[in-house]
């Protein structure tokens, strides 16, 4: 038998291997890069002044639950002259009085508007800011002085009650599926809050700039980047409303949404090496 087989099978195996491996060198040549880094927010800039309908004022200090979404974009350049803070360069003006777009190569956020299962939380709760339902309840009751109320107007007092409401209306069975509670985006590093961010599949242009801002709440704890008339439509018995989401062009027209108290990066990060980690500090507090 051996003599009949000879070296034929070995040759065939070699040919088959070569043929099988012939298409293994496929490269899509995508002009994209994943950028990784951190965003830094000085704690001293995060205090928020709240004014209720009775004009009573108080300050929420050093509380990450009062930090709105942080928007980070990658742009061709930063212009110091457009606003009182550095702002991404505009594209061509659309008309006499119309602002041109900024065109991000990529971007991401740290936190997003995540509806907190009650209408009172529309455009007021942000993902990555609460570890538990109790923290949400505590924040609304103690810091905003506006406790969450259930359908009957009674205060929601226990985390179990809150969780049950969320599970029921969101058809979920675990907290992991609700972005409102979960791991906190920011970690405490002395004088700063620091969050890891990843800008996946950004178009890579050498010399591009990473720039960003944090949407901080207004005196009524509203956020300028959130549109309460969009987002998922909540329909449950007599509850009919949108749950709110960010405006779709936040990174195209950031100047339109940056309002009093928002934190902006004074110095953008120029990217020359896609592999190098970046650190973006939001060190400027904008005041109208």
């Amino acid at each position: 038998m051996n003599s009949e087989l000879g070296s034929g099978p070995a040759r065939l195996l070699a040919v088959a291997t070569i043929l099988l491996s012939s298409a293994c060198t496929y490269d899509e040549n995508l002009p994209n890069a994943d950028l990784f880094g951190t965003v830094v927010i000085p704690k001293e800039l995060t205090s928020v002044r709240i004014v209720d309908i009775d004009n009573e004022e108080w300050v929420v200090e050093d509380d990450i639950r009062a930090i709105g979404p942080v928007y980070i974009g990658v742009y061709a350049g930063i212009d110091e002259t457009l606003y009182s803070y550095p702002h991404p360069e505009w594209g061509p003006l659309l008309g006499d009085n119309e602002q041109g777009d900024a065109y991000p190569y990529g971007g991401t956020s740290s936190g997003r508007f995540a509806w907190g299962c009650y209408q009172a939380t529309v455009c007021k709760t942000v993902s990555g800011r609460y570890e538990s339902y109790q923290q949400v309840l505590d924040f609304f009751r103690d810091e905003l002085r506006a406790p969450l109320l259930d359908d009957h107007g009674d205060e929601v007092t226990t985390a179990e009650q809150y969780q049950e409401r969320c599970f029921e209306i969101e058809y979920v069975t675990s907290d992991d599926e609700l972005d409102i509670v979960g791991p906190i985006d920011f970690r405490d590093e002395g004088d700063n809050w620091v969050a890891d961010v990843s800008i996946l599949r950004s178009q890579f242009k050498e010399g591009m700039h990473i720039w960003g801002f944090a949407d901080m709440p207004s005196q009524a704890f509203g956020f300028s980047t959130c549109d309460p008339s969009t987002g998922s439509y909540h329909s449950n018995y007599d509850e009919q409303y949108y749950t709110g989401t960010n405006y779709r062009d936040v990174l195209n027209f950031p100047g339109k949404y940056i309002s009093d108290g928002d934190l902006v990066s004074e110095v953008s990060v120029e990217v020359t090496d896609a592999e190098a980690e970046f650190e973006l500090t939001l060190g400027y507090k904008h005041e109208d």
């Binding site: 979404p69 928007y71 974009g73 900024a102 065109y103 991000p104 971007g107 991401t108 956020s109 740290s110 936190g111 997003r112 508007f113 993902s127 990555g128 972005d179 961010v197 990843s198 989401t245 960010n246 779709r248 062009d249 936040v250 990174l251 195209n252």
Partner: peptide, 10 residues
Amino acid sequence: DQDGYNVLGT
């Protein structure tokens, strides 16, 4: 955004 829920820009 970071969770892939919403578009922040184009």
